[in-house]
Simulated scan of single mutants.
Amino acid sequence: MRVVHSPLELKKLLKEEQGTIGFVPTMGALHLGHRSLIEAAREANDLVVVSIFVNPTQFLEGEDLDAYPRREEADKKVCELSGVDYLFYPDASEMYGEDEVSLNAPSVRGYIMEGNSRPGHFSGVLTVVNKLFNIVNPTRAYFGKKDAQQLMLIETMVANLFMNVEIVPMATLREKDGLAMSSRNVYLSEQEREEALKIIKSLRTATQMVMKNELHVSRIREEMLAILAPLDVEYVTIVNRSFEPIEHVEIGNTIILVEAISGTTRLLDNIWI
């Protein structure tokens, strides 16, 4: 495995390679969810590139940029054991300059749900993903479905900008207790983690309601909110896969999404129906 820090060096090295490139962009603190993305990339491509970059432009003022978990040596070992060919570890000073071009998230779908509570967050996400795609020039890029709004916006960017990369969505992996795997789970105290399990409980209840032919979005949402109390709920939203609001669940075309805060930790989860 080769560790590269310079964007221009990585770009040059990959131009000299042959075959398909599978790319897994991450912010580090790698867990089994990340490993599932890497394994999928390994199976389908000739080369695997993983980036680890805690992107400052997607953090709002007062958020956990400085405290975001960083485990450089452990992450390197995970990548090495997972068969990664290139590990890209850039510094912010090489990824960003002054007065530079950036991307704006869509004015509607980039500012609903998580974008409503974190205005500008998705502009930062799309800007850095665009930069990473331009550096790596991947054949396929792998993203988890847990960050469903992010996934949708990246797919939109790729389509709108006619980018030559296949986006591969991957299923959410969960801890044994059902909590969606996330680098931020390490922030949770034992009590906060117990409270956080209300998120998956609410999503499973929603699924059971749909299986019993309860398709009214308002009734499902009301039941979920009752389960989630007293968590600080940012939103419970039920949309189609284009992220348009719906009044009734459409089997095969619906995502039920939750964002809630346990203690001081923001948690996202969803279920695709």
Rank of each mutant, 00 (worst) to 15 (best):
G252M: 07
L203F: 08
A92F: 07
S117C: 01
L179P: 10
R193I: 07
I167A: 12
P245L: 01
W272F: 10
V217L: 05
G178E: 02
P138D: 13
D177P: 06
R221Q: 14
E247I: 03
E98M: 13
E61W: 02
V50D: 03
V165M: 12
L153K: 09
E114G: 03
I273L: 15
Y68A: 00
L197G: 04
I227P: 06
H34Q: 08
K12S: 09
M181A: 09
E190F: 09
K176F: 10
R184M: 08
I256L: 07
A74Q: 15
I251F: 12
T57G: 00
L267C: 08
L60I: 00
A74D: 15
E250K: 12
A41H: 02
L37N: 06
K77E: 15
G120T: 05
P245N: 09
L13R: 05
R184H: 07
E192V: 09
L87K: 10
V217P: 00
P106Y: 05
K176C: 12
E195G: 10
E63T: 02
H5V: 10
M95Y: 00
E250S: 11
V129E: 03
V168I: 14
E244F: 04
T207W: 13
L87S: 12
L161E: 10
L257S: 06
S102L: 12
P7N: 05
M1K: 15
L132T: 05
L215V: 12
K12L: 04
H121A: 01
V54F: 03
A260Q: 15
I112K: 08
V165W: 10
R241G: 04
I21T: 06
L179R: 08
L8G: 03
